[in-house]
C-alpha cells in the first residue's frame, strides 16, 4: 500500500457540522488529507490548521514591480530618449505620469497574483483533477483521510471517528 492512494471519505451535508468535525477529528489524532467543498466554507482553513495564504504578498511585490517599470519607462522615454516640450511643461512631468503608473501597478499586481495562484493551486486547462466524490462540486463536503498516512490507527477506528463527528456517509476510495 502506497501513500496517497487509499482513502476513507467522510461525507458531510452541513458546513457547521463539518467545521466542528474537522476540529474533533484532528483532536482525536487522525490526520486529514484534504476537505473538498462546493463553495468556500469560512473558517475551514483555520480549523484545518492551514497557514494564511501568502498570495497578498505576491500581489504587493508584483504591484511594486509594475510601479517601478511604469515610472522607469515613462521617465526614460519622455526625459532621456526623446525629450519633447509639450505645453511648455518639464520633460519629466511627474504628475502626468501617475495615471499610467497606477494602471500598470494594478495590471501587474492582478496578473502576477493570479499567475501565482494558478501555479500554486495547480490550475491549468489540461489539468486532470483527482475526484474523490463527484458530489463535492454539487452539494456535499467530502473529507478525505489518507490510510497510509494514518497507519498508526485501525481503519475501523477512523470510520468510527468520522461517524461520531456527524458524517452522513463513510466510503472508501482508491486511486490506481
Amino acid at each position: 500500500m502506497e501513500r496517497d492512494k487509499n482513502f476513507v471519505l467522510g461525507i458531510y451535508d452541513d458546513e457547521d457540522v463539518l467545521l466542528n468535525a474537522v476540529t474533533q477529528i484532528r483532536q482525536s489524532g487522525v490526520k486529514i488529507h484534504e476537505v473538498f467543498s462546493p463553495y468556500p466554507v469560512h473558517g475551514l482553513e483555520h480549523n484545518l490548521g492551514y497557514r494564511r495564504s501568502r498570495l497578498p504578498i505576491a500581489a504587493f511585490l508584483f504591484g511594486l514591480l509594475g510601479t517601478t517599470l511604469a515610472l522607469t519607462m515613462q521617465f526614460y522615454m519622455m526625459k532621456f530618449d526623446w525629450p519633447m516640450i509639450i505645453g511648455g511643461k518639464d520633460h519629466a512631468s511627474f504628475p502626468a505620469f501617475i495615471p499610467v503608473t497606477f494602471e500598470l501597478t494594478v495590471l501587474l499586481a492582478a496578473f502576477g497574483m493570479v499567475g501565482v495562484f494558478m501555479v500554486s493551486s495547480n490550475l491549468k486547462p489540461w489539468g486532470q483533477p483527482r475526484i474523490f466524490d463527484i458530489r463535492s462540486t454539487d452539494d456535499k463536503h467530502v473529507m478525505a483521510i489518507d490510510l497510509v498516512n494514518n497507519s498508526h490507527l485501525e481503519r475501523e477506528r477512523i470510520v468510527e471517528v468520522l461517524k461520531a463527528s456527524g458524517a452522513t456517509e463513510v466510503n472508501n476510495k482508491s486511486f490506481e
Binding site: S37, E45, Y50, N122
Partner: peptide, 12 residues
Amino acid sequence: FGWDGAAKTWMR
C-alpha cells in the same frame, strides 16, 4: 482548469 474544490484552493 482542473478545479477540485480543495479547502486549500478555496482559501487561496
